[in-house]
Every structure is written in C-alpha cells, then in structure tokens.
Design a binder for these strands. Structure first.
Lengths: 202, 202
DNA sequence: TCCCTAACACGGAACGGTCAGTCTCGCCTG
DNA sequence: CAGGCGAGACTGACCGTTCCGTGTTAGGGA
C-alpha cells in the first residue's frame, strides 16, 4: 500500500508506557472496511466497528480524530503503489491513476472506496486526509509530468492543474459513487487518452 | 424548475378528506435545503427539518419514502430548465448540463447539491430519484444528440453513452463534493469541448 | 340546499432503539 | 508508574413510528 499519510499519528517513542498496538489498529481498519461495505456512510457506526474488531471505542479515537478520517485511511490501505510509467505520455498519466482503478475493480474495494469518498466530501477531517493523499500521490507527480509534457510541446501550456485533476478523477469517482457500475479494465487509460486528445498541441 | 420527477407522490383526488398541503411541502423543502447546507449529509437530521419548517415528521414521511429522497428533491428544485441549444454541437451539449452549473454557482446551491449527491450515492431511494432525473433530463436528450452527431460524422460512433455521461458529469460532481472549489462560469462548456475533442472524427 | 359523517392531513409529542463522544474502570506492558 | 488496552456506563441526539386532538374535505341522505 502507498503509506496513507502518517495521519494515524504514531506517537513519538520518547516516553514511558507501552506502545500503541499496531495489531489493534489493523483489526480496526479491517473491521471498518467491512462495515463501510455493508452499511454505507450514513449507516456506518463506530460501535459496530469496535465490536467487530473486538476493540474499544477509546482506542479508535486515540488513533483518529474522527470516524471519517478513519474511513479514508481504511480505504487508502487498499490502493496499491503506482507502477513505473514507461516513456509514452499516455502510459505515464495512466500510471498515476491506475492504482485507484485497481482498488475499485473488486466489489469490496468498490464499496469501500465509495464510502471513503463520501466521508471525504462530508467530513472535514476526512477531506483533509483524502486531499493530502491525492496531493502527494497524484497531484504533485502529475504537475511534474504535465510541466515536462508542456515543455516538450506534447500538450498545450494553458491548462489549469486542478481542472486536469478533476477531468482525470471525476469520471471514476462518479462511477464509484453515483452510477455504481463496475469499473472496467482500462477505464483510467481511457481518461488519460481523453485528456491527451483534449490538450494536444493545436 | 425542471419538475423533479413526480416522486413526492401527489395522491389521486378521488377520495375523501383534505388534500395534502403544498404549503407544508414547500416549507419542508426550503427547510431541508438550509439544513443540508448547514450540516452536510451525515449530520443532517429529520427532526431539525421538521422543527425548522414547523412541520410534523409524519408529514415528511407522507411525502417521501426516505430522507435521502427528500434531499434530492430539494436540490432538484434549484436546477433551472435547460436553455434551447443552438446549432453548434458544442453549444447543444453544453445546454444539457449547464443547468447544473447554474445551480452550483451560488454558495447555497453548491452545498445543497453536494449533499444531494452524497444522498444519491449513499441512499437507495435517493439514488433512484437522482438517476431518474438524470435519465430524463440529461441522459435521454444526450442519447438523441449523440446519435445525430454520429450520423453526421461529427463524432465517432464507438462511444458508450454512459462513459460519455460520466465524462461530462464527473468533473463537476468532483468539484462539488471532493474539491469543493467554486464552479466557475464556463466550466460545463469546457467539459463539452473536451468531449468533442476526445470523440472527434479521427 | 344543507348538514352529517367518514376519511384523512396536519402539528405536536412521545416512544424504544441506536449512536457519538466522553469517561471510568481494572488489567497489562514497557 | 505512565499509558495503552477491552469493556462498559453515561448523556444527549437522532431515527422511524405511533398516538392524539384539531381541522379540512368529499360524498350521501334529507
């Protein structure tokens, strides 16, 4: 997984007492994913997660500032690392977003990602966790790549980075949340192709 | 407004007793919009809507099968009718989705639409109401239009209608929900342009 | 025409059940 | 001995439903 922001604040190891149990944390995230898939966002309950993970609610609130932040972390753990992009511009753009597609292609991942997106849109903390991840793993590398492509005259220079991001991510998020249709293989590659056609030089 | 599906089932006028109060219904929808904008989806409560509208919860559940369905109806009432599209393909596609942009361009509309989208993604009834509206007001006219453009060789024939829909709607929904940035004028026109570039004949 | 009555909408209030977020235990670990 | 842990109590809020008393309307009998 792509180290989902250190948000679950691992406490500094310069004090007395036991360390926080990574075992409990993992059990909580696992239970959270199952509850997310079963009950959606509004129907999601901390009590159920605690019970399913045989953990105490206190432990959950020790790791995360809000349940939304926990939901996003739980989902981010399903997203694999990005592959090495080749030389082809289309391949390199696809490589940035294909981890999302990979996570979304199972029924479980589809549902978990949906709830995480709902959390990110509905909960302040969750939104920050999500945007931090996107910023680091997608937006930043995308910015470098686009700058390079613009310099090479592969794409036009008059683009707004965030507009491009929305064009690449919007469709797959729409599919995950509103239409709920399966994400077919190559979906993200299509978005990359569409972007290149849109912003091709002349 | 674009008659948001008759979903709030207006009962047939062939029975005894008083008619349902359209005044109450309007007050409820108004109150619902305010609560949506203030509290988001998970923080949204029926009790608060009832109190704010000086209505009884009974009345709410008489009109709508679930609070999600009510939220979607409340938001749909903000969406104006589509303008007449001109002759230009780009204009005609833009005309289909610009009502969404118009509704999203105020702070209030932005927040209300966001919650409606969350409801549609999270609640079964709400999702049906939303998809029914999109199907009637956007998907169906879009299908006709695309068929015409394909026949005239303006666009390629190998497109999937729902993929196009996602490409047109995904970015604005992403902006409403995840990035929460203001929707600038011409946003939808850009999506239409991007689509035409992507699917242009060769 | 007039009025009675059954049927039902309304606001308000209450219900049992669930949940969030906090707190307190007693135990255990480093 | 500081602090994590599971367990569970607690308060206030909420959901979805039900009941109440009042008001409004169509249909029917005189």
């Amino acid at each position: 997984m792509s180290t989902p922001t250190e948000t679950p604040s691992t406490p500094s190891r310069s004090r007395k007492g036991p360390t926080r149990s990574e075992v409990s944390k993992a059990a909580i995230l696992e239970a959270a994913r199952d509850e997310m898939a079963e009950n959606g966002w509004r129907g999601f309950s901390v009590d159920s997660v605690a019970k399913r993970a045989s953990a105490s609610k206190q432990t959950i609130y020790r790791w995360w500032p809000s349940i939304g932040a926990m939901c996003v972390d739980a989902a981010l753990a399903l997203i694999p690392d990005a592959p090495e992009g080749g030389r082809d511009p289309q391949e390199r753009i696809t490589a940035l977003i294909i981890p999302l597609e990979a996570a979304a292609r199972t029924g479980h991942g589809h549902a978990v990602l949906r709830v995480a997106l709902l959390a990110a849109a509905d909960d302040k903390d969750a939104g920050e966790v999500w945007r931090a991840w996107v910023g680091r793993d997608i937006r930043q590398p995308l910015r470098m790549l686009l700058a390079e492509l613009a310099a090479k005259r592969v794409i036009r220079r008059d683009f707004e980075l965030d507009d491009v991001l929305e064009q690449l991510l919007g469709p797959i998020f729409h599919r995950l949340t509103i239409s709920r249709a399966p994400v077919k293989e190559g979906f993200c590659a299509e978005q990359a192709t569409a972007f290149l056609r849109t912003y091709a030089q002349f």
